[in-house]
Simulated scan of single mutants.
Amino acid sequence: MRAWRVHQYGDYRDVLRWEECEPPPPPSGGVRLRVAASGVNFPDILAIAGRYQVRAPLPFSPGLEAAGVVDAAGAGSRYRPGQRVVAFASWGAHADYMTAPDAAVFPIPDAMTDEHAAALTVIYQTSYFALRWRAALQPGEVLLVHGGAGGVGTSAIQLGKHMGATVIATAGSEAKLQVCRDAGADHVIHHRDADFVAVVRELTGGRGADVIYDPVGGDTFDRSTKCIAFGGRLVVIGFASGRIPDIRANRILLKNISVVGLHWGAYLDHEPDRLRRCHDALCELYAAGAFRPVLYATLPLERYPDALDALRSRDSYGKIVLTTT
């Protein structure tokens, strides 16, 4: 099979290799799928550099998620060859074949394209878990989404609107503000030109946002505590800024706010059934037309380094998907 492979950790432009290798065997309780499309995520860059939460054993193929057709199933798998599925794993997606345990494999509805399926799992499950279960977002509440034009950002805007929230989104360019509007944001803030704290307070009559969705961290997290409503929930999604922030406990106490984390991948070990329930819910919403993944580009698998360039430069928005055909 063809695969992008990493034999030593480092910058992806230096260490990625396009190689021919043997397809991996399916696990006993899982499947091997013939990949049709795979999703590109920022953790790919960290994994290749050896700086992701789970360090992949060398050599490995990067990539967290892929859609395709079951090629072979282990003896204990619930799936059979020929079924269309989407799968996720800590690595292995950017290749012609990928393996995953059944708990991380879900059927793809007939009406969903491979490209949309490859863009679904990581970002939409992250936002669904964050808004529905971690923040318990309610109809009529105000949701502030930072990094609104990114993959998790656009999914949070779409799902937040579906859940009945008024959505405020931040982004760093006029083009990305339009991406947020197109995703359904009611209000947008250019965070390089305006003080988002002041704007959020003005838009909410001084009350602040009920739920703040923060994949940025750093100064964005620090300043978000100044525009959160009494009893609000600040959901920590990630640290794209590069700085992991701190918070003084008296701020949590005085405004009765909750700061909650979401490590979505950890649910595979702790509550795997929630992943399946979330997938089913997202497929129902997709079938009803509630959302469509926002795709910046669909590129052939061979152009994976170019996709990572667009991701690292922050030129991209939404999701980048790679296809094998």
Rank of each mutant, 00 (worst) to 15 (best):
F291L: 01
G172P: 15
G50R: 03
E115N: 07
M112S: 03
M1N: 12
R2P: 10
G39P: 11
D214V: 06
P59G: 12
V188Q: 01
A194M: 09
D96T: 14
H263I: 14
D44C: 05
E115S: 07
G148E: 02
V167E: 07
V259M: 15
K255L: 15
N41K: 01
V15N: 03
G147I: 00
A95V: 12
D306L: 01
A36R: 10
A119K: 01
V260G: 14
F196S: 04
E271L: 04
A135E: 06
R55G: 02
A130F: 02
R32P: 10
P300D: 03
S61P: 12
P62T: 04
V152G: 10
K161Y: 11
I237M: 13
T323A: 07
Y124A: 03
E115Q: 11
L120W: 05
D114H: 12
R132T: 03
Y304K: 00
L137T: 00
C180H: 02
R276K: 13
R55Q: 08
D186N: 10
R80T: 11
F221Q: 09
L285G: 02
G147V: 02
D214T: 06
A149T: 00
Q138P: 10
F88C: 11
L120R: 07
T121P: 10
P107Y: 08
V6G: 05
F88M: 13
A89T: 09
D214F: 07
L120K: 09
W4Q: 06
G206C: 06
V70I: 06
I123F: 10
I212P: 11
G242H: 09
E174K: 15
G184Y: 05
V69I: 12
Y267F: 14
R51I: 04
Y9A: 11
F60T: 00
G208F: 10
G140F: 03
W91M: 04
L144W: 04
I108N: 04
V86K: 12
R5Q: 15
N41I: 04
A47C: 07
A73M: 08
L159G: 05
G160L: 03
V211H: 04
A73V: 08
V70A: 05
V260C: 15
I320A: 10
A281D: 13
A49G: 07
P24G: 05
D309E: 08
A175F: 12
P23K: 00
Q83T: 11
A87M: 14
A66D: 01
G164A: 12
L177D: 08
G318N: 00
D14W: 08
P62C: 08
A307T: 02
C283S: 13
H190T: 14
R277C: 07
V105C: 15
H146N: 01
S316G: 07
G218K: 05
R80P: 11
R78W: 09
K176M: 12
P101R: 14
A103H: 14
P43R: 04
D273N: 13
H146I: 03
R312F: 02
P305W: 00
P272T: 11
R207G: 07
G82R: 15
G68M: 06
D14Y: 11
T204F: 04
G153E: 10
F129M: 15
G50W: 01
V31M: 13
L301Q: 01
R51H: 04
V6N: 06
G39L: 06
V167M: 13
H190L: 11
D11T: 09
Y317P: 02
V321Y: 05
G164Y: 05
G39D: 09
P57F: 06
D246G: 15
D273H: 12
L33T: 01
R51F: 06
G68R: 00
D195A: 10
A118N: 04
C180A: 13
